[in-house]
Computed example of a mutant assay.
Amino acid sequence: MTHASVKSERAAQTVAQHLESLILEGSLRPGERLLPERELAERLSVSRSTLRDGLRILEERGLLAPGGGRGSRVAPLGQAAITDPLIALLARHAEAADDYQEFRGIVESAAAAMAAARATEVELARIRDCLDRMDRAHAAADAQEEAEADAELHLLIYEASHNLTLLQIMQAMAGVLRSDVIQNRSRLFAVPAIRELLRRQHRAIAEAILARDAPAAQQAAGEHIRYLRQASREIREAEARLDLSLRRLNGGGAGTRAGATPPLPDAGP
C-alpha cells in the first residue's frame, strides 16, 4: 500500500469516527438525512472521495443506510431489537403498556434531574424554544403540533441528561413505542382540558430544568408520568367497557337478539 493510499484510508477513518461520534451523542438522530455530499465534504474539509470512503465504513457498520438516491441517512439504530415480535406482543396487552409507563416514570424522572444538573446553555435554549412551540400550538388548538412538541421536549430532556446510554435506548424506543397503544397520546390531546393540564405539567418539568432545580425536575417528571399512566389506564378500561357493551348489543356477532329476525327454518322436502 502506498503512502498516499494509507493517508487516504486514515482520512476516511477520521471522517467515519467523527460522524460516529455525532450519532452516539445524539447530534445525528436515527432516520436523519445527512447533508448532500458536496456540502458535507466542505464542512469536514475533505475530498468527496474521502467522504464516500468514510460513509462506506459506517454503512458496513450498520450506522448509515442508503437514502434512496438522496444521500445517506442515519440507520434506525436499536429499533431492530425493539421491534422483536415479543415487543409487539407485549404492546397489545394492557398490563405491558402499564409496565412501560412505570418504566418511563423511573427513567424520565432521573433524566429530568440529570438534565437540570448537566444541561448546557444551548440545550436550555432548545428547551425554551420547544416550550414556546408548545404554547403556540396550544393557543391555536393544534393538537397534532402540540403532541409533536410534547415528544420533542422529552427527547430534548434525554439529550440534556448527557447520559448516552439512556439517550440511545429511549431514542430507539421512541420510534416504536410512541404509538397510541402505549401512550394514547392522540386520545389525550383530543380533550382540551387534558391538553391544558399536560401543558402545565410539561412547563413544570421544563422550568425546573431551566432553574437547574434537580429535585423539582425529578418530582415534576414523576408526577407527569404518573398522570399519563393513570389516564392511559382509564382510557383502556373505558374502551374495554364500550367493546363489551357493543358485543352484548349484537350477541357478539354470533347470536340473535329479541326483535331480530331469525333465519327461516329449512322447510324440508
Score class of each variant (00 low, 15 high):
residue 217 A to G: 02
residue 54 G to S: 09
residue 83 T to W: 05
residue 76 P to Q: 07
residue 55 L to Y: 04
residue 257 R to V: 02
residue 96 A to H: 06
residue 79 Q to W: 03
residue 66 P to M: 00
residue 222 G to K: 09
residue 102 E to M: 12
residue 102 E to S: 13
residue 46 V to N: 03
residue 191 V to R: 10
residue 154 H to R: 13
residue 36 P to R: 13
residue 105 G to F: 09
residue 182 I to L: 10
residue 65 A to T: 10
residue 51 L to V: 10
residue 45 S to A: 15
residue 82 I to N: 00
residue 227 Y to I: 09
residue 233 R to T: 13
residue 115 A to S: 07
residue 28 L to G: 04
residue 133 R to K: 12
residue 178 R to T: 08
residue 2 T to F: 03
residue 205 I to R: 02
residue 248 R to S: 10
residue 4 A to H: 06
residue 150 D to G: 03
residue 175 G to M: 05
residue 213 D to G: 06
residue 21 S to V: 12
residue 13 Q to C: 13
residue 23 I to A: 10
residue 165 T to P: 00
residue 197 L to N: 07
residue 69 G to Q: 01
residue 75 A to T: 00
residue 150 D to M: 05
residue 85 P to H: 07
residue 227 Y to K: 04
residue 161 S to T: 04
residue 85 P to M: 01
residue 227 Y to V: 09
residue 53 D to W: 01
residue 135 D to F: 10
residue 199 R to M: 08
residue 52 R to E: 11
residue 249 L to R: 15
residue 31 G to H: 08
residue 135 D to M: 12
residue 61 R to C: 04
residue 170 M to F: 02
residue 18 H to F: 15
residue 118 R to H: 13
residue 6 V to Q: 12
residue 24 L to F: 15
residue 64 L to A: 06
residue 38 R to C: 08
residue 41 A to V: 07
residue 267 A to C: 08
residue 16 A to C: 09
residue 181 V to S: 13
residue 125 A to C: 09
residue 253 G to Y: 08
residue 258 A to T: 10
residue 147 A to Y: 00
residue 78 G to W: 07
residue 210 L to T: 01
residue 185 R to K: 08
residue 134 M to V: 11
residue 4 A to P: 00
residue 258 A to D: 11
residue 266 D to I: 03
residue 61 R to P: 00
residue 211 A to L: 01
residue 74 V to I: 11
residue 60 E to Y: 10
residue 88 A to K: 15
residue 232 S to H: 11
residue 268 G to L: 00
residue 79 Q to E: 13
residue 119 A to K: 05
residue 129 D to F: 06
residue 1 M to T: 14
residue 181 V to K: 13
residue 155 L to P: 01
residue 164 L to M: 07
residue 38 R to Q: 13
residue 129 D to G: 12
residue 233 R to S: 15
residue 175 G to H: 01
residue 95 E to L: 12
residue 158 Y to P: 02
residue 99 D to M: 13
residue 54 G to P: 05
residue 155 L to D: 14
residue 174 A to H: 01
residue 65 A to W: 01
residue 80 A to L: 12
residue 153 L to Y: 08
residue 2 T to W: 04
residue 15 V to P: 06
residue 138 H to I: 01
residue 223 E to P: 07
residue 266 D to R: 10
residue 45 S to T: 14
residue 58 L to V: 05
residue 207 E to T: 03
residue 259 G to R: 07
residue 3 H to K: 14
residue 196 E to F: 04
residue 262 P to H: 07
residue 139 A to M: 10
residue 63 L to C: 07
residue 92 R to D: 14
residue 185 R to Q: 09
residue 64 L to M: 04
residue 161 S to A: 15
residue 54 G to E: 08
residue 182 I to C: 01
residue 98 D to V: 11
residue 248 R to P: 02
residue 74 V to C: 04
residue 217 A to I: 04
residue 15 V to R: 08
residue 43 R to Y: 01
residue 191 V to D: 11
residue 108 E to Y: 15
residue 218 Q to E: 15
residue 203 R to P: 02
residue 66 P to I: 04
residue 66 P to A: 06
residue 184 N to S: 11
residue 141 A to P: 01
residue 90 L to W: 12
residue 267 A to R: 15
residue 180 D to T: 02
residue 215 P to F: 00
residue 37 E to S: 14
residue 94 A to Q: 10
residue 222 G to P: 05
residue 269 P to N: 12
residue 108 E to K: 13
residue 73 R to W: 02
residue 87 I to D: 07
residue 207 E to A: 05
